[in-house]
């Protein structure tokens, strides 16, 4: 930012003014966006407090039971570990979905329109939202794993890092879903639709309840739902097992679908504003 001198304004030579670099991206913009996210109490509750609370309620009581024949005391992996990583995935998912869907209320407040009256490139605006989702999702993952470790729920470091990174990257897919819904529906509806969808998807994906304990029909249906792929990949990574062969394709297909939906809705919106 530089300050133009107080020259007369009635004989402006347009070439004396320039457009910002990077389509208007700035760290100030990103930091104000992050500040807004952290001030939003429901975002903080669902991305940080809820997963950590679940660690206490569900993971902690299962800490002693091993998922294999090797007891936890002898270095076996505790049943609490996949629960912990599931909660990390859930936190990252909610963080990024809520970041994405915030465009709905910004549209309703006329903020998107206001931004169209600045040099900011609409694509940069979306990238800032994605970055915010990644920052918040990353924090949710790190906080959940750190609190888990403090409780003594732990796995080999490599497994934790691998699973944590997978959980974190799942944010990208859910930011797309949030953006798509945020651009498709008016503000109040957007949250009303997403509110119940996330827990249902998480349940079907096996984040809240082990899928192998469910009827076979549900297990098969679950493999077609969007959260199953990322849940299976990260749960497998943390216990050091091979994931289901369909887990990666599931993640990829849903990522592409959600992103295409988001791009479509975004295009429709920028035409209309």
């Amino acid at each position: 930012m530089s300050t133009p001198s107080l020259e007369r304004l009635d004989a402006i030579d347009p070439s004396s003014r320039r457009a910002p670099a990077l389509g208007g991206f700035s760290w100030t913009f990103l930091s104000v966006e992050l500040k807004r996210l952290f001030r939003n109490s429901s975002v903080v509750i669902f991305t940080l407090i809820f997963p950590i609370g679940m660690l206490f309620l569900v993971a902690l009581p299962n800490r002693g039971s091993s998922i294999s024949d090797v007891p936890v005391s002898a270095g076996g992996i505790s049943a609490a570990v996949p629960i912990m990583i599931s909660m990390a995935v859930y936190g990252a998912m909610v963080a990024s979905t809520m970041t994405g869907v915030s465009v709905a209320s910004e549209r309703a407040q006329g903020w998107s329109r206001q931004l169209r009256l600045t040099p900011l490139n609409p694509v940069v605006y979306i990238l800032v939202k994605i970055l915010c989702g990644l920052v918040l999702g990353g924090l949710a993952v790190i906080a959940t794993i750190a609190v888990g470790a403090a409780m003594g729920i732990t796995a080999p470091l490599g497994n934790l890092i691998g699973a944590g990174v997978l959980a974190w990257l799942s944010s990208l897919m859910m930011t797309s879903l949030g953006l798509a819904v945020g651009y498709a529906f008016p503000a109040q509806n957007a949250m009303r639709y997403l509110g119940p969808i996330l827990p249902v998807l998480s349940f079907m994906g096996g984040l809240f309840f082990p899928l192998y304990l469910m009827p076979e029909g549900v297990q098969i249906a679950a493999k077609f739902t969007p959260v199953w792929g990322i849940a299976n990949l990260s749960q497998s990574a943390v216990v050091g097992a091979a994931p289901d062969v369909w887990a990666a394709p599931n993640l990829l297909v849903w990522f592409v679908l959600f992103t295409a939906f988001a791009v479509l809705m975004f295009r429709r919106d920028t035409r209309r504003v």
Binding site: A19, W27, K35, L115
Partner: peptide
């Protein structure tokens, strides 16, 4: 903050 955010989007600004 609204002003900071708005100003950050332009290449040249006043204070």
């Amino acid at each position: 903050d609204t002003m900071k955010l708005t100003a950050s989007l332009f290449a040249q600004t006043t204070s």
